[in-house]
Design a protein around this nucleic acid. Structure first.
Lengths: 212, 212
DNA sequence: TCGACATTTTGATCTACATCAATGTTGTTG
DNA sequence: CAACAACATTGATGTAGATCAAAATGTCGA
């Protein structure tokens, strides 16, 4: 039944999908590309508060308005549903509600971990944590024992994600290259050459912050 | 029926209620006092990721382990329920599940707003935002047109909440006193003398960050 | 009421990162 | 493919807030 109001829509990099304060007409899930949630202060200071990768969900039951700007970081494809019928579905099917609750709690944990990064980590630790986050979702080249990471954003966007400036991002990235931890094969394409050193540089404890 | 497994427990200031990684035996709600959620890095750097004031809820359906340390910031009284029967109740009564979802989403928004503070705000803006947060939950003296705020924590704890050092907290607090924005009537007791100036100093937009 | 300890304030200095300013690279469009 | 715009690097300099170090204040138990 829900199939009938499903629709795909594509956005190009840089496009704002939803503005803060706007009424929320639909919920969606990311099919391809990367989107981000962010908030901008009056004087232009911007902070990203979430990254949305494929399979991530946009929208929240019970909310009629958008709380943060949603921007297409790369070219993006969303699979959208109208909000009203979606909410009816949530109410009618407990295990969907259950699943959404799970997702909200996961996001909450992620947001709180990010608070530690923003409040207490050094520039290098921030960059390392960011690369590790992307590496975890990336392809592994078994032969060369390397992980290729695609940076889905510009230096400026990375800076807004990590609470840094773009110059600091650039410098730290090149410092890690000089240290042999990563190597570039394009401005937005890099390989992790020393996984252990990268983990070490994150400042997180050995188990990766996971509860065992 | 839930009444039967309800129990009150008190903790004294500084006591750790739950350690990260521990199994979660109960859920609870704060009756009196202040608790905090925090995470500490190996080298001791600490970041608070949440403040729990009276009526706030501790625990999350579907989670068996604790994700962040829960510490009694002041003397504290909790109203606790065993987790298992509580979860049964959640599953059986949709509107309780609904309410919990609401709370999770509210916390998520709060966490994201805090990310902006940690990533982009200056020390003074952080302090102002913090005071404004407390002022919103405080008593208003109608006669003097003043708001009395009780700081429920030490300078050091405030610093861990705001991603600062205790010295910076102390200096900024005294700077705001010198500027006539606040006045002290005890180390942990202050009045907001100029509400408009305080709002202004937060760096948030005029409407207080609320969506209208 | 007196220490003894925790907390806060205050001052001096240091430094990581921001800011300002070119210069160098890439990718795109007519 | 030239030439322009967007993005990235690199260097020089500035500064907010950290760090280090006392002193001052408050608090609590004996």
């Amino acid at each position: 039944m829900l199939e009938r109001m499903k629709s795909y829509k594509t956005y190009s990099a840089g496009e704002t999908i939803l503005w803060r304060g706007e009424p929320m007409e639909f919920v969606a899930s990311v099919v391809a590309g990367v989107a981000s949630l962010s908030k901008t202060m009056e004087d232009g200071r911007t902070q990203m508060v979430g990254l949305l990768l494929p399979s991530d969900f946009i929208g929240r039951p019970g909310r009629t308005h958008v709380e943060f700007d949603v921007v297409a970081t790369t070219d993006l494809t969303l699979c959208r549903f109208e909000r009203k019928p979606f909410e009816k579905l949530v109410i009618d099917t407990p295990h969907v509600a259950q699943r959404l609750m799970e997702m909200a709690l996961d996001e909450l944990d992620a947001a709180r971990d990010w608070m530690i990064l923003l409040g207490r980590k050094t520039a290098r630790e921030k960059i390392a944590t960011f690369l590790e986050l992307l590496a975890r979702r990336s392809e592994v080249d078994m032969v060369k024992a390397q992980i290729s990471v695609n940076l889905p954003m510009t230096r400026d966007q990375i800076a807004n994600f990590l609470g840094l400036t773009l110059e600091t991002v650039s410098r730290q990235l090149n410092a890690m290259k000089k240290d042999g931890i990563i190597g570039f094969s394009g401005r937005k394409e890099l390989e992790v050459l020393n996984v252990a050193a990268l983990r070490d540089a994150t400042g997180d404890d050995a188990d990766g912050g996971m509860i065992i």
